[in-house]
Nucleic acid binder design. Structure first.
Length: 293
DNA sequence: CCGCGGGCCTGAGAGC
DNA sequence: TGCTCTCAGGCCCGCG
């Protein structure tokens, strides 16, 4: 499910009920997700205040008053829901809320402001880890991640220097979290279409021999930023699992130009091409062979 | 170092 | 209705 816009949508939904609130009770409803839960998971969370909720790549990062950071990854099918955000948490209400839990609600956070937050993940590719804040950047899951695409540091020069010398395809390069953070199958396809670049093009061809950006690099950076901003404004894309934390669907799937649209006319003005599906690295790629070169 | 394929899981949808 | 097969938004690991 979740690429950067979906994770950011979740973050914006959770921040108002998590930031400044204390974790009064944490329920683990199974012993593992993709990985076993951290040792003493519940003990290290309960009683701590969430001082901030951030995002890096596709990770949600909850800063805790203990100095630890709760890293949360949604995998393919993870979602958070705020079940109850009114009134005070009381044992009586807790009983009422429990009846709303469903089969794949694996973790439940009870907050001091009355909010009850569930993490649901049918496929269990998601996971949670606890790391000391000071060690976060050096963590094996974090240290190799590339620049945030919506940050000022991500520009044509940076992307070109990273891609210079790469023999792999643009599709594979942009899907690599070490090249740029947070893109996945949907937004790579969408960004390449907006930039009129073929997913099969060699990544190195957005740079000259010295590694400097050409006009393709600039078009690609502009397209990546634009599609991510548009998708965040729409609350992300809901194909099957993604929901906002209030349970509502995202809307960006209605604005896809190529993703899952094989056989439909290319939406580029003046292009008479037809969207095609191919397979790259065992994943579907959607593109227009006419206007993406 | 790099690229590729397999694997981790469950569920939805298509085809028979 | 129900079985089987394929595929899915992520990412790690081992192989050559």
């Amino acid at each position: 499910m979740p690429e950067l816009p979906e994770v950011e949508t979740v973050r914006r939904g959770l921040a108002p009920v998590m930031e400044g609130a204390r974790l009064t009770k944490v329920e683990m409803r199974r012993a593992d997700l993709r990985f076993p839960f951290p040792k003493d998971f519940v003990r290290r969370l309960e009683g701590k205040t969430v001082t901030g909720l951030g995002r890096r790549a596709k990770y949600l990062l909850a800063d805790l008053s203990s100095g630890e950071v709760l890293m949360m990854h949604l995998g393919m099918s993870g979602s958070f829901r705020v079940l109850h955000d009114k009134g005070e948490a009381t044992p009586g209400k807790y009983h009422h809320e429990r009846s709303k839990l469903s089969a794949h609600d694996h973790v439940v956070f009870h907050m001091s402001n009355g909010a009850v937050i569930t993490f649901n993940d049918p496929r269990r590719f998601g996971y949670m880890k606890l790391v000391r804040r000071a060690e976060l950047d050096a963590h094996p899951l974090m240290k190799a991640i590339g620049p945030e695409p919506l940050g000022n540091a991500f520009d044509a020069a940076m992307l070109a220097s990273t891609c210079a010398g790469k023999k792999t395809s643009l599709k594979a390069a942009l899907s690599d979290q070490k090249v740029v953070a947070g893109l996945g199958n949907i937004y790579v396809c969408e960004a390449l279409h907006r930039a009129h670049l073929s997913p099969k093009r060699r990544a190195s061809t957005i740079a000259d021999r010295a590694g400097k950006p050409n006009e393709r690099a600039q078009a690609l950076v502009d397209a990546i930023k634009a599609v991510l901003n548009d998708a965040i404004k729409a609350g992300g894309s809901s194909l099957r699992d993604h929901r906002r934390t209030d349970g509502e669907l995202g809307n960006f799937q209605h604005n896809f130009r190529v993703y899952d649209r094989a056989g439909t006319p290319c939406p580029t003005p003046g292009c008479n091409g037809t969207i095609k599906r191919i397979v790259q690295g065992a994943r579907s790629t959607f593109f227009c062979p006419v206007c993406q070169k």
